[in-house]
């Protein structure tokens, strides 16, 4: 580690906030321009100033909501990654790898395929939340019971839980589907993909993202303390048990919203906090904010690529993030496991 020459990194400076904000704005512009025909900057400007042409309507009515949804989902994934890494005190923890996203997906599959007599807008997030929560608790319990605390062991437990949940999800899809339900819809959602939301959906996503961010920020001090180890955290005044229980709830809510609106998107929750830490340091308040912005930028760009790479087909978003994020994860893992 060449940390000796690393300058002090502590906090979310105004310059950095502006830089990340600018990055997000640029990414949104790229997202708006991307599609199976690329919009020129002039056309983008015309559309955003509202000239009302059919071309512009395509951008403002179709692409803009989707790009914004991608930004929100990305922010949620970044926040979720932060919470999980802080909770597991492990830079390799990630909702997707630890089975939490898989649990949310099982819940969502049930909501999509089983008529529960309630509107799907209610059952989907609620069941996704229950799934995410139980999967996370399960991994933590396995870790605690088996005494596993190191990165590799916890990840193995997470991978096993994720595999079981994946199989369960496939089984549910086969067992529950009939002619009235298009498996194609469920499948494409599962591979990760931002749907183009309506106004109400987008508003709901915006409100939920804001709420998740605020909730996540309330855990920042506790996550900082937890990073000192449970004994030190306790001696500095943290009610460790209660805090972990609450943070699992918050993390599961974040993951559930992200999965409900964006399907299974891998590795953003791993990479965003990692990059964030190198920009703002290990304190969780600035880290959560930075990770949200980085996650948003990453998913907006990945979604743009998903729409523009192979027109007229659309590549599932989860495929792109896995292809880009997988190697990133392997490098981190190799570094971590090296004695």
């Amino acid at each position: 580690m060449n940390a000796a020459i690393t300058p002090p990194r502590d906090g979310f400076t105004i310059r950095l906030a502006m830089l990340l904000g600018l990055g997000l704005a640029l990414a949104v512009c790229v997202g708006l321009a991307a599609g199976h025909d690329w919009a020129s900057p002039a056309r983008l400007l015309a559309a955003l100033t509202g000239d009302g042409s059919l071309d512009s309507r395509l951008i403002t009515d179709w692409r803009l909501p989707r790009v914004l949804a991608a930004a929100f989902v990305g922010a949620l994934l970044g926040i979720g990654g932060c919470l999980f890494q802080g909770l597991f005190r492990n830079p390799l923890a990630e909702p997707y790898l630890l089975g939490s996203a898989g649990g949310a997906a099982v819940g969502a599959t049930v909501a999509l395929l089983v008529p529960l007599g309630m509107p799907q807008a209610v059952t989907l997030p609620v069941l996704a939340f229950c799934g995410a929560w139980s999967a996370t608790v399960m991994v933590l319990l396995i870790g605690r019971v088996s005494g596993v605390v190191d990165a590799a062991g916890l990840l193995l437990a997470g991978v096993a839980v994720a595999a079981i949940l994946g199989a369960l999800r496939s089984f549910l899809m086969l067992a529950l589907s009939d002619e009235s339900i298009s498996l194609q819809v469920v499948l494409s959602w599962m591979l990760g993909g931002i749907q183009t939301p309506g106004t109400a959906g987008l508003a709901a996503l915006a409100v939920l993202t804001g709420a998740c961010l605020l909730l996540a920020l309330t855990t920042a001090r506790g996550l900082d303390l937890l990073g000192l180890g449970e004994d030190m955290a306790r001696s500095f005044g943290l009610d460790v048990k209660g805090f972990i229980a609450v943070t699992i709830l918050v993390g599961s809510a974040v993951v559930a919203v992200a999965v409900a609106f964006g399907g299974l998107v891998a590795f953003i929750g791993l990479a965003a906090p990692h990059l964030g830490r190198s920009l703002v340091g290990p304190r969780h308040r600035p880290l959560i904010l930075a990770s949200a912005l980085i996650g948003a930028i990453a998913v907006v760009l990945a979604d743009a690529l998903a729409r523009a790479a192979l027109p007229p087909a659309e590549i599932p978003l989860g495929l792109i993030t896995a292809l880009a994020g997988g190697p990133f994860f392997l490098v981190l893992l190799a570094r971590r496991l090296r004695p």
Binding site: D10, R89, N90, G227, L228, G229, G237, G281, P282, R283
Partner: peptide, 21 residues
Amino acid sequence: AAMIGYMPQAFTPHWDISPRM
């Protein structure tokens, strides 16, 4: 926490924090 200070046998923070933090 305000009343009792505790220095455990081993202390290794999980993140690369600074003494100031």
